[in-house]
Design a protein around this nucleic acid. Structure first.
Lengths: 236, 236
DNA sequence: TTCATGGTTCGATCATGGCCGAACCATTTG
DNA sequence: CAAATGGTTCGGCCATGATCGAACCATGAA
């Protein structure tokens, strides 16, 4: 009887279509301006401004003003995680679901969840890392093994600066479309940016669909796919 | 732009204080009648009835009629998981938080999350199971090892009937108060009921606080606590 | 059968809150 | 400086939806 209202407050924030649209637009981790978000939500600027103040007051988004723009982003990956959870529920309960839309399959294949990879590819990544012994459970949490550190270093990821931060290095995040976990945390984010550096993937200009390049498909299969711990090549 | 509204629909369902109260009251996995839920929510019977129809239509609760009563329960543990997620957000963003309340610490120590154990004890349980090699990651999902099956059998849990079901055997569920995972899935539920059978714990009449008995404290520490894989004896 | 109880439906009331146009503020550019 | 652009505030309009009393239905008990 005490926590009901408190969750209702934040849920109500997510319960308005305009605000929900804004938040899902922010799920790719980018920071967007108020006018862009107004466009995403399909409402006027004054309305959007009001919504954004509420979201900020509710602690769901954080704002950064730069010149005459105000950039909004999700205040943390936990917000994205809850949004993913809600999508899972909406999916299971078959909520309205007007039309599947052509980008739906692409979304299920690979998408951004705040700042890391989600969808089929996201869970495949975590699977591969575990199968290769790069990550393992320790003290009840996911952590890189000694061999894993070397593997990640080879892949071009420096764990040093990631370690000391408040944000956890590895976190399992429930994927709404796959109903399995994918890798979140600062390592998940680092892997995504590294793959982008390697031109393995491109994040879509619009939405949070992630497209793999041909060389990315190949490289991903080689490095994370298959099931042999593979020293040299691992595909097929 | 299409999935915003769909999550908004389900979030709006959670966004009303009365409904949120009802759902949190159901989080202990019990089935409650409409009048009980009306009481929990602090609202009249007609109002409660309306809310419950909406929740049912939205697929968040399922109903079972028995005589002249109608029993409502959460439609699945994923609903509870999203509620836990929302509590985590509400906690982090410091939403209103009227007064901590005396039962808060007890809630953090041990509580029900739908039908399994959560809170400090819940994550300790999962930690212990992993540390003892009872559960391990396989194919990217948590599963009991061969040795683990024996351990669980010793503890009085028959995995046979749990295996074939649609519901996953093991699932990691994010704990809002601990920010770590605890064990959900049918095994999580089975462990809880077994501990209740052993009189290790009692689920509070009201709310979802779980109280450990003195013998339960001792047994839990012996079987799941510590870090020694403990020789022969396990439970009972 | 009649009565009592759990629950739903209906109708009316009322508050909340989303929405936009217009005016206003702030920052950059010319 | 003035003009232009991004954003907020204000006022009023309007739709949604939460709420309850009263009447109604269904089940079980007397």
């Amino acid at each position: 009887m005490k926590d009901g209202p408190v969750i209702a407050a934040v849920a109500a924030l997510l319960g308005d279509p305009a605000r929900a649209n804004m938040l899902t637009a922010l799920m790719d981790g980018r920071a967007l301006t108020a006018s862009e978000l107004a466009g995403e939500a399909g409402v006027g600027l004054p309305t959007a401004s009001g919504h954004l103040s509420k979201l900020e007051a509710g602690g769901l988004v954080s704002v950064e003003k730069q010149g005459r723009h105000r950039y909004f982003r999700l205040s943390g990956s936990d917000v994205a995680a809850v949004l993913e959870g809600l999508m899972g529920l909406a999916d299971r309960t078959g909520a309205v679901r007007t039309r599947p839309g052509p980008k739906e399959p692409a979304l299920r294949a690979a998408r951004l969840c705040y700042d890391h990879l989600a969808g089929e590819r996201g869970v495949a990544l975590l699977d591969g890392l575990r199968r290769r012994g790069v990550l393992a459970e320790r003290d009840g949490d996911l952590a890189p093994t000694a061999a894993g550190r070397a593997f990640l270093c080879d892949f071009g990821i420096d764990l040093g600066p990631l370690a000391g931060k408040r944000r956890p290095l590895c976190r399992a995040c429930l994927d709404w479309s796959e109903r399995r976990h994918h890798l979140a945390g600062s390592l998940g984010a680092a892997l995504l940016t590294r793959m982008a550096e390697l031109s393995w993937l491109k994040v879509g200009e619009t939405g949070r669909v992630v497209a793999f390049t041909p060389s990315g498909e190949h490289g991903f299969a080689e490095v994370f796919g298959g099931d042999a711990p593979a020293h040299g090549r691992a595909g097929r």
